[in-house]
Amino acid sequence: MILVTGATGFVGQALVRHLVSRRRPLRLLLRPGGKPFRLPKGVAIDVAVCDLGDERALAAALRGVTHVVHLIGAERESSRASFERVDVRATRALAEAAAKAKVQRFVYLSHLGADRASAFPLLKAKGIAEALIMNSGVPYTIIRSAVAYGPGDQFVTGLATLLRRTPGIFLMPGDGSMLMQPIWIGDLVEALDIALTYPPLENQVVSIGGPEYLSLRQMVDVLMTALHLKRWIIHMPLGNLKILALILDQWRGFPMPIYWLDYLSTDRTTSLENLPRIFGIIPARFHQQIGFLSGLKKSSPERLGVQEA
């Protein structure tokens, strides 16, 4: 039995669909009062409604579970995020409970750049969560992923939304030269699935990304071409743009969590060989997989939202 947390989010929904297609026995851990989740029809999936701070309920949710995929994070809440509660305390509770339950593998999805000494709240929280898992005694695999994209993602869909919402101009963070390594959601969930049982990955931290390094400017150019848009690029210092994003976010007007701006503070890449060498996956190229954005051309900005990571 595989327990999945964060199943209502972007990666979680894609992973659940993937595991269901592979006929894996699943249990979804949903928090009380969380957003609605539509279960796949005709498929037997257990659901445990549980607060990760409830030790007894957590032990019950882990009964019969052999593997855990931990996906929840607070970044989707943007300026209202509580990393201490969601990323740190909840991860500690789940990892310790999984160790007591003799879970065979605990797979955690982290970010490139995660470091408990980081100056950025999101990356610091991810680094602390990684350390808690490694010290819990549960066999683990930590996947530090580059930015993932696909239908319902936060970053690429957010960029596309910004391009549509600002007629004539686009505010480019910094000089746009920071390098990224976008990974297609299908490749990411395949890697998470492999990490559940692949022996060489036990008690390992692995960094993965897509098959190419792209600057933010190159990604924006690809998106403008795909959306048939022309925008005048105005470069703005990251600090100034973050202040603007914070102001807009108070009215829920910024189409992506503000912590993505921290992610853009430096290059976020890893070896191009990791995904094919470690997982046997030939990753998809960015320009080949952004057809899902074509629907944005006919959608009003008000209908374009983000989903849980």
Rank of each mutant, 00 (worst) to 15 (best):
Met1Asp: 12
Ile2Thr: 12
Val4Lys: 02
Thr5Leu: 02
Ala7Gly: 12
Thr8Gln: 06
Leu15Gln: 01
Val20Thr: 11
Ser21Asn: 06
Arg27Glu: 01
Leu29Lys: 07
Leu30Arg: 09
Arg31Tyr: 11
Cys50Thr: 12
Arg56Lys: 14
Leu58Arg: 02
Ala59Cys: 10
Ala60Trp: 02
Val69Trp: 00
Leu71Asp: 04
Ile72Asp: 10
Ala74Tyr: 04
Arg76Val: 15
Asp87Met: 09
Ala90Tyr: 13
Leu94Lys: 06
Glu96Gln: 13
Glu96Ile: 06
Glu96Phe: 12
Ala97Phe: 06
Ala99Ile: 09
Ala101Trp: 09
Val103Leu: 04
Gln104Cys: 11
Gln104Ser: 15
Phe106Trp: 03
Phe106Lys: 02
Phe106Cys: 10
Arg116Lys: 14
Ala119Glu: 08
Pro121Ser: 03
Pro121Thr: 00
Leu122Cys: 04
Ala125Ser: 15
Ala131Thr: 07
Leu132Val: 00
Ile133Cys: 11
Asn135Ile: 01
Val147His: 09
Tyr149His: 11
Gly152Ala: 05
Phe155Asp: 02
Thr157Pro: 08
Thr157Phe: 14
Thr161Trp: 00
Leu162Pro: 13
Leu163Trp: 01
Thr166Met: 15
Phe170Asp: 04
Asp175Gly: 08
Met178Thr: 11
Leu179Trp: 07
Met180Lys: 01
Ile185Glu: 01
Leu192Gly: 06
Leu196Ser: 05
Thr197Ile: 00
Leu216Ser: 05
Leu216His: 01
Arg217Gly: 11
Arg217Ile: 01
Arg217His: 15
Leu229Phe: 08
Lys230Val: 09
Ile233Cys: 04
Ile234Ser: 03
Pro237Phe: 07
Leu241Val: 09
Ala245Glu: 00
Leu248Ser: 11
Asp249Tyr: 12
Gln250Leu: 12
Pro255Cys: 10
Met256His: 03
Met256Asn: 01
Thr266Glu: 12
Arg268His: 07
Leu275Trp: 00
Ile278Arg: 12
Phe279Asp: 03
Gly280Pro: 15
Gly280Ser: 08
Ile281Tyr: 05
Ile282Trp: 01
Pro283Lys: 08
Pro283Gln: 13
His287Pro: 02
Gly291Ser: 13
Ser299Met: 14
Glu302Phe: 13
